[in-house]
Design a protein around this nucleic acid. Structure first.
Lengths: 205, 205
DNA sequence: GTCTATAGACCGATAGAC
DNA sequence: GTCTATCGGTCTATAGAC
């Protein structure tokens, strides 16, 4: 399961990603993590200091890249003459899609969904402090594309969009994929359906 | 916090609802629950047998009423001559809204969102075994109202709708409510925004 | 039905040898 | 950097007095 050629630190991160995605942060113990990673129990505290810090590092490892890719995609859309709502949504989803295709990425996507569902103050704060500005930028661009939509309606709809995306992505790799379809195709299909749905919902009268 | 005039069993259920909503099923211990309920630790095992069974009873207590109310509302819409998509969505949301207005109901709504986010096999199975048929009925009626929509697109969109609703409702009682607005008004507003958004998303070309 | 007390297991974290 | 061993604390569940 866990590739023995990676360093102890990376093996811990990968095992933790899988187990926390499956059982939750409180539900999976460091003993389970180190056992799955084929690593000694004490290694977690040596490399990360504490369970809480291990969780933070887990998010940092993936989110730094994800937010950078999203901002790059948004800037590209912005600089085009006539940006559409669909393009902005695509710029938001596509990087998450690529992430989900990386090694262990699909576990992380589920972990992210879990972090949002858990109204854990500490974790939410960490995510919003470090990566909240990206969401604000997307919201700003979307607001410009929907100039007639009242602000409160916009915020509600952006919340619905986040919810729809979170839930759909957290199901990646679960039950829904039909047989004979590659993961890649499945994610591409999901993204297309999502963009159509979200754009129409945002444009509702 | 916990009304001392209710029975031991009910005080345990209410305290468990609050604490599991806040900290997750693994995150909150029976000691915290019994302490918040002002009840002896051993009372949980006397009345419920185990922590797992306590969780099941928690869902049963609310979901029996919720699904019955949803089916009643759906039947009413069905029997009307010209049912609209908006009416069907309203029939789905309104009972959840009423539930959220009950004593402790808002905690339960967050708990429900958590149960979906946790891909815990045991809990998901319990919910879908006991209450999955309601979702199927709604899906059938919605499919009839969108005869030109391919089946796979419909399933994706219904997933997005569930996600949007779950996510939005799990935020009830959290940060979003503006000052000077009653809980009741806030929920009503949320429902209206949701129905507009979801109907438009489902009708997307 | 409600309590105390405790069994038996697991937890995160650390000290200290190598 | 990696290991063993262990501390001090928590957990669920239960036995048995009242």
């Amino acid at each position: 399961m866990i590739n023995p050629h990676f360093s102890t630190k990376e093996r811990i991160l990968s095992a933790a990603e899988d187990l926390f995605a499956k059982s939750g942060f409180a539900g999976a113990s460091l003993r389970q993590v180190t056992s799955a990673a084929n690593v000694n129990l004490a290694a977690v505290n040596y490399h990360f200091g504490s369970k809480e810090n291990l969780i933070n590092e887990l998010f940092k490892r993936r989110l730094d890249d994800l937010t950078a890719a999203r901002m790059a995609a948004l800037d590209k859309v912005r600089s085009s003459r006539q940006a559409t709502l669909e393009q902005v949504l695509e710029a938001f989803v596509q990087p998450a899609l690529s992430l989900a295709s990386e090694r262990g990425g699909s576990s992380f996507v589920r972990l992210l969904a879990r972090a949002f569902a858990e109204h854990d103050q500490r974790l939410r704060r960490f995510v919003s402090d470090n990566y909240g500005h990206v969401l604000k930028e997307f919201a700003k661009v979307i607001a410009q594309l929907l100039p007639n939509l009242p602000k409160d309606a916009l915020y509600w709809r952006l919340d619905f969009v986040s919810g729809a995306l979170t839930y759909a992505m957290s199901d990646f790799g679960m039950i829904k994929k039909p047989a004979g379809v590659t993961d890649e195709q499945h994610r591409r299909t999901a993204a297309e359906h999502f963009v159509r749905f979200a754009a129409a919902g945002l444009r509702a009268p």
